[in-house]
Amino acid sequence: MEWLRHIVQHGLRGVNGCYRLLHRLRPAGEVLYVGRIRYRGAAMEFADGTRLTPGDFIGTLHFNNARFAQLDGESNRRAALQFARLMLESLQILAHKARHDPAFSDLAVFHALSWLPPHGQRIGFITQPYPHGASRRLRAAYFRLLVWAFAPAAQTRASARAEPTLYWITRKELLRQFADAEPMRSTE
């Protein structure tokens, strides 16, 4: 069955590469890509006073799925700790970009859709469940495929509940949490 996982990984890497090119995503560390789009949802106001209105540009955060297959997969705990370290490094780089890169310094909010259960409040993320409906079921199925293909630990592949969750972090909160730390790695 491992041979099938490798074939699916190869296909998904191609899909992800095309998606990155089409949406002009740029790396922010080893596990994140960042893009920008116009927001099309309802107006929102965040606890720090940041307002988001339809038509505003927002940053979009996307995982580097192929990088997950390279994590140390001896146990799901070990892989999770390695991912957490790489994610914090990526967020430091993102904060640096939000402060210094003209392509991202005007973005007031960053947004992601992930299969990971709600977490990250300690480092400034706000989470919301993805709305119920056909889109949720389709995204959940895609996330299950991604986890099966790329999760390094068999235990993670077997136990992950790939339910879509919306993640938000404001530029103010990102900078408050991560701007003082210099980026540990460069990806440019």
Rank of each mutant, 00 (worst) to 15 (best):
N76Q: 15
D56H: 08
P54Y: 08
D48I: 06
P54I: 02
F63C: 00
S90K: 08
R85I: 08
N76T: 13
F68H: 04
T53W: 11
S75V: 05
M44N: 12
A43R: 15
R85N: 12
A42Y: 12
P54E: 10
F68A: 02
Y33K: 05
Y39F: 14
N64T: 10
R38A: 14
G73L: 08
N64V: 05
T60E: 09
L86Q: 09
F68Q: 00
M44T: 11
G55D: 00
T53S: 15
D72Y: 05
F83L: 06
G49N: 13
L61S: 02
F83Q: 00
R51A: 06
M87W: 14
Q70H: 07
A43D: 12
Q70F: 02
G73P: 10
A79W: 05
T53C: 13
L61I: 11
D48M: 02
M44G: 10
D48V: 07
Q70L: 11
A66W: 03
F68R: 06
G41W: 12
D56P: 00
G59M: 01
N65R: 12
L81C: 13
T53K: 14
N64G: 01
A47H: 13
G73I: 10
A80T: 10
R85H: 14
R38I: 06
I58K: 06
F63Y: 04
Q82A: 09
Q82F: 03
Q82I: 04
G41H: 12
A69D: 09
L52R: 05
G49F: 12
R78F: 05
R38N: 11
A43N: 10
L81A: 14
N64Q: 09
I37D: 09
R40W: 07
E45A: 15
N65E: 13
A79D: 07
L86Y: 12
A69I: 04
R38V: 04
A69Y: 11
Q82D: 09
N64K: 08
A80V: 03
R51I: 04
A47R: 14
D48G: 08
R51G: 02
R40L: 09
F83C: 01
R38K: 15
T53I: 13
R36Q: 13
L86V: 03
L86D: 06
A80L: 10
A66K: 02
E89T: 04
R77H: 11
V34W: 04
A69C: 07
Q70S: 08
V34D: 05
M44I: 13
L81I: 10
M87K: 15
I37A: 07
G73Y: 10
E89A: 02
L52E: 01
E89R: 05
E74S: 15
Q70M: 05
G55L: 02
L61E: 00
G41R: 11
Y39V: 09
I58L: 11
S90Q: 08
M87T: 11
R36Y: 04
A69N: 04
R51F: 03
L61Y: 00
Q70G: 03
A42N: 14
R78A: 06
A79F: 10
A43T: 11
I37G: 01
H62T: 14
T60Q: 05
F46Q: 03
A43K: 13
A66Y: 00
L88D: 15
H62C: 11
F46N: 02
A47V: 13
G49K: 12
R67K: 03
L86P: 01
E45I: 14
N76H: 15
L88I: 15
Y39S: 02
L61T: 01
Y39D: 07
F57I: 00
A80D: 10
L52W: 06
F57D: 13
